[in-house]
Design a protein around this nucleic acid. Sequence first.
RNA 1: GCUCCUAUAGUGUAGUCCGGUUAAGCAUUUUGGCUUCUCAAGCCAAAGACUCGGGUUCAAAUCCCGAUGGGAGCACCA
Length: 558
Amino acid sequence: MALQNAFEHGGETRDKIILGKILGTKPEFRNKVKEISKDITEIVSSINKLSSEEQESEIKENFPELLAPKEKIEEREGLPELKDAEQGKVITRFPPEPNGYPHIGHAKAAIINSEYAKMYGGKFILRMDDTNPEAERMEYHAAIKVGLEWLGIEFDIVKSTSDDMELFYEKGIELINLGKAYICTCKREDISKNRRERKACKCSMEDIEKNNKNWEKMNDKFKPGDAVVRFRGDMKADNAVMRDPVLFRIIEGKHYTLGEKYRIWPSYDMAVAIEDSIDGVTHAYRSKEFELRKELIDEILDALKMRKPTQGFFSRLEFKGMPISKRIIKPLIEEGKVTWYDDPRLPTLEALKRRGIKPEAIRKFIMSLGLTKANTLAPFDALEAFNRKFVDADSIRLFMVSNAKKLTIKNLPTSSIEIPNHPINDMGKRTIEIDENFYISGDDAQSIKEGTQIRLLGLGNVVITKQGIELEGEFVENGERKDIPKIQWVPQKTAHKIKMIIPKTLFIGDEFNEDSLEELDVFTEPHYLQLKEGEEIQFVRFGYCRKDSQNQAIFTHK
RNA sequence: GCUCCUAUAGUGUAGUCCGGUUAAGCAUUUUGGCUUCUCAAGCCAAAGACUCGGGUUCAAAUCCCGAUGGGAGCACCA
């Protein structure tokens, strides 16, 4: 073994490493370390005296099997194992609030939880977390559903938190009667101040009877802001969440499905605790800004003697320079800096789709991030790399020229030509009608020298006879194939003008990037018009793009 | 300010719980080569990391203590 190690590391080895290897493979030696280490030192020094050629021949003679190449270590597939998980009995859930358009962060939570359900043959619940009528709208509810469907996520159960309003009231009253909750009629600022200063208020001293009466009053007499139900936690706790948090509050806004039926609404903590418990959720994974709520949720359920789920946390996912929060996106839309939530520069699902990102790529990408709690600020090119693999195989190859320059070619032998739609896969062929007038890209036109040969892809070689604003050339039969520029082209007669949109990073640092959207006028083949909207294409030597409309394409990535 | 979480190559991660079978694996990125009628894809190769300082141990990315960087919470939002 020492011999092998020495050979692998330039003819020299160290006794400590050999010792480690031996103890690693043969744990039975671990209590005889002193005895064997002496032997190892001797062996090692004798081996180090040999030249590497001698070592090699020694290995060949006595241990030829060691020369076989090492096996690669296999990477763990998918997500790490869940604690306390039983095959077939795992229930996970994804509880978005319908208060905005779904984005990559939603995708992460949904994908991780659905993967876990799948991994254990369990069930997966979509629960619209709609307990704040002021923020939630049907429009968002629908957008979330559309987004999840696009991602290909399937649910066993679909429900809304607000389905269980009566149950929340029941449990709320139970907490009051247990003395675990009380009605607080302090002002909002005072509650906040007391929590900061770890001081209890008078309301927390009230007896159960009074609290029950006040609960009744919350139904009609109290106005929003007059009274809240607070959990009796611990005003001295280090975890600020435990300092008597709010369980219910009065909101008079119209709920998007229930209208004005209820005016007392449970807070997030109350709702999540009860819902996860009664829905049978075994494993509740959410992003780590909720980490401090774990203790509270457990305490609420303990107080009610209800079953507790295992809670886990993962880091938020954001892309560098692509804001996720409505707080930032909304003003951009209002100022016209971004067109809408489907603007290709945004990390919303709608935008990602429009940009040409495939749902499978998002899934792979998110799975590759793992389940860490360290902050993830992923560069967008990581997603692009996954996407390229999905998109390459079935993207039709088309010619497109930017900054077009005219090229006239003499002696063309044909008036039409067939070109395959994909270099490897069979995606059919298209016929292009040609005459002597072509467009080529400005960049290419500039780099060509007069008198040299270029190859027009799929067509043949051309020798350039005149350089300038407009170029002229002559067709060459059986020209050189290697080591000449091979460029794409478009016939002038049938060239179809489209707008090419190239999305770039929205923010550089904290600054809005004024050049975040580049628009080019380009020419492509008429075949473009026959493609379906939303189809992914590769413009040869330019990159992958998605057809947005007959007159517009969006650059996906290289 | 207080509390909690977190720290592995340029980037994202595996390994950390239970110290040794791996002088740190994978992906991406970059560079070079092969292949190719695309600067794509595919194939091959190279480059590159355990935040810092102590301690425990025959042995530390892994355990302990301290420091530092990053993030979050301290809402009648979720």
